[in-house]
Design a protein around this nucleic acid. Sequence first.
DNA 1: GAGCTAACCTATTCACGAC
DNA 2: GTCGTGAATAGGTTAGCTC
Length: 657
Amino acid sequence: MDYQVSSPRASSPSPAPRSQSPIAWGDEQQPGSPTTASALPTIPQQSSPEYRQEFSRSVGENERHPKGKRKRTAAKDKAILEAAYNANPKPDKAARLDIVKRVSLNEKEVQIWFQNRRQNDRRKSRPLSPQELAALRYGGMQILSSDPAPYNASFSSDITTTSPVQPVSHPEQEPTSPAQPDRPVSQAGEEAEPIAEVPREAREWEEPQENAKELATPKPRPAHDQSSALSQSFSASVGYLSNRWNAGNSFTTPVNAGRDEPFSWVTPMMQPITVSPNPSYSLESFSSSCPPAFAAGSILPPPSTQSSRFRISMSLEGKAEVVASVISPPRPIAAPPTPDMLQSLRSIRRPNLQRSHSASPIVTLPPISVLTNSLTNHSPLPPRLTRGRSRDVHAWQFACDAENREDALTAQAKNESNGSAIAAISLLRSTSSTGGSPLQQQSSSAKRNATVSKATPRPGMAKKAKLGRASSSVARMQSALGLSEKVNFSNQQGVSTPSEKVKVYAQHSPSGHDSDKENWSPDEDGNPRTPYYSHAQSISGMSTTGRRPLPSSATRSEKDYRKHPRRTPGNNRVGLNDRANTAPVKGWGHRRDKRAAQESVLEIFEDDEAENRSPASSRAALDDEVERFMRGNVSPSKKSDVDAVAGLLSLSQGNWR
DNA sequence: GAGCTAACCTATTCACGAC
DNA sequence: GTCGTGAATAGGTTAGCTC
């Protein structure tokens, strides 16, 4: 069915003469029509690209194209494909066949087109490379990369900068196609809040939701798509903007900046920045979403009531600063929804659902308040969790890449800001016990960033440094889940481990440095609430404090069921994205063994101290442990940890310079 | 458990078209 | 000639199934 072609590279590096081309283009229309290049009609030179494409299309279908001549997808076909892609980026075989009927491409070509299309999306959604981040961090707001990541134009709507640096328009966005209803389009001319083009990165966040919708109603597109796109555009742009903003500006957010009045500060380049008092895009949008990963000088507001009064912040120069914590003022109340919106909300909103409040300040999260505000203000959609886990490996890989951002001070500051001394100790333990962060991975090696990752190939990667799959959550969990994470895990679970072996199902530790901590919704005590999705728990029997399965995982799995009828949901791995978690794991043998390992529980040997404890006794024991730890009554192996913590505490007490 | 198939991914090459 | 885009390939991984 497909044209028979040998690899151009394998056959000959130089283009062969046309008449010798073995490629049969469109041979499924006319199988075995041996035409040569000499038989090809000549494309008129004075013709528009569309005409030339159409010409090539009409000619190429039934002719053998010479080697190296690649047919371009016709405009009409491209429109159809784009529409199909927007409806379903991953069409199954039936959908592909349906598309094949509508376009003048064969199934293989359609499949490749979708594959390339997805790759293109991911490529565009890739995060900043470490080099770019470094350039931004030390070069102010200047974009030094040759392949600059976009700055969202909506940035300028809420932040009035008097600096000469202007928001950079997105140079990579494709021209808006009429067949792309969900392609983020600037609403600046229509809405009070200008919404610029949202990079694909932001859209990636939405993709699982879209897939979920498709599963629920396998229709091409829901009716509310437009409004959804609007809200998505807004919310996505905020999250994306936060990343970009924080990535490029490592400054300490003024803690006393009010929400209702503009405030200003000075960027590292001594460029004054003024933030307008836009309630939907308030300071919290920046501060709460400002990850230490990208803005070392910014420490998130402590989500826990047990947080300390002081937090350690690191200035741009890398100096430790002790910042007095200021209790965050209450979040601005969203504008009351209209009756229509309430109606739609009531019809869809599920009871007892709570919007996830970032349980960890480590991960860059889109400001929930902004999300809710945007949903409330702009969309009649229910306040769904529009932020699933991005399937973009690069994004999360970098977000989890402790090597890029972590140091002792920031780590301590984060934990301390979280009000958890145990977490701080645990973190230090983990780093000391494992010899490094389990999250130390290679950064993104997207095409244009490939040199970065290639520069530091990991051991064992003979050919090239692979992506973060090799260090998926499961892998990290198996390989590097140390005492620290166990402590964190039990701490966040709020329950003790009844036995020596802590059974951890294929769920990931919420504190396992996974970047999807936005899925956790801690309660007032810092304990995670029942996650939004309880599917995983219902299947695995895990406690209700388990991590909510990633939307993409369930989506992908169910999509696979649709794609592969032979694949039964019964074999679905709970909480594991079949792609994102397809990491080769050390110590895992055959793939079936891997699968078995994933399906089976993971055994973690807990300290004796953690045995047979009730929740209360567990907490007491932990407190005792902390006390003993702080008193220095620890084993020699933990002495370094004591020193580190003591140093940090010394810093927090003012001896930081 | 091995082999096969299908699907997906990333990385890469290279033709094509615009400038 | 340069550069960006898109079509296509290569290599790798997974799941599901069969034997």
